[in-house]
Design a protein around this nucleic acid. Structure first.
Lengths: 129, 129
DNA sequence: TCGAACCCTCACACAGGTGTGAAGGTCCAA
DNA sequence: TTGGACCTTCACACCTGTGTGAGGGTTCGA
């Protein structure tokens, strides 16, 4: 598919798709006229990239991580240098940390929203836990 | 405490502490000589801010969210405008989404790392699940 | 009283993700 | 064959979080 379609199907600007390619996150072949040609599986890939970016990971790391998230991954085993393993372990821990933080704060927000709802319903503050 | 101590206790540069203040995320009083004076509870507050920033939330939102995370929060109920409630609900959902994404990808990384470990141990790829 | 270690404001700079627009080529349908 | 929709590259520009340094005060111990 061409860039316009991929853009529409991923709700991602053409600009960003080219940027991701420049960063090595996605690849494309070229038609005879120079237009980019994308494989169908790139839709999922782009969505995954966006999610990881939104989660705070830089493209540099996403590029490292993406191959490991592919299936089958066996073919990537030989590429697993010790440095990369270390980077991945570090990043995994950082992600765990992020999840903890996000979850905790999100729960606090939920709790607050529930309390506000209760307040608006009954006109009085809910009992302290 | 002064900025140097807060900086040391939160492992955050003075520059950033001033920036957070400029953004309205933290407050300080001023000593007679113009030095900033921080309350002790700001240590936790700053760590929380850093966590939220690292989790991908912009200062703009953190500022909105922080008051809801305080205890007791009852005093903030009157401030809960419908727009703010809506913003919070939106952000809560975005955070849930982020958690899902991070967890999924982190698990994939963990799985990959485990497979690599197995591979290095036995010299052969683990059986496909 | 001097120097070190603080603090202040201001401002320039950078990296990363993203928008926007210019200048131009391609393709298809009216 | 012309117009519009699509594509190309290139470049400037923005915002946000952050570093760094200049120029200048304050505090305190040697």
């Amino acid at each position: 598919m061409r860039i316009g379609e991929l853009s529409a199907r991923t709700d991602t600007s053409r600009r960003l798709l080219r940027y991701y390619e420049e960063r090595g996150l996605i690849v494309s072949t070229r038609c005879a006229n120079g237009y980019r040609d994308y494989a169908g599986n790139l839709v999922d890939r782009v969505l995954q990239i966006r999610g990881l970016l939104d989660a705070g990971l830089p493209t540099r790391l996403i590029k490292q991580i993406l191959p490991c998230l592919d299936k089958p991954r066996v073919i990537y085993f030989p590429d697993a240098t010790p440095e990369m393993i270390a980077t991945l372990e570090e990043e995994r821990d950082r992600m765990t940390e992020r999840v903890r933080f996000l979850t905790r704060n999100r729960d606090a927000i939920s709790e607050y929203l529930a309390a506000v709802k209760e307040y608006n319903l009954t006109g009085s503050a809910p009992p302290a836990p």
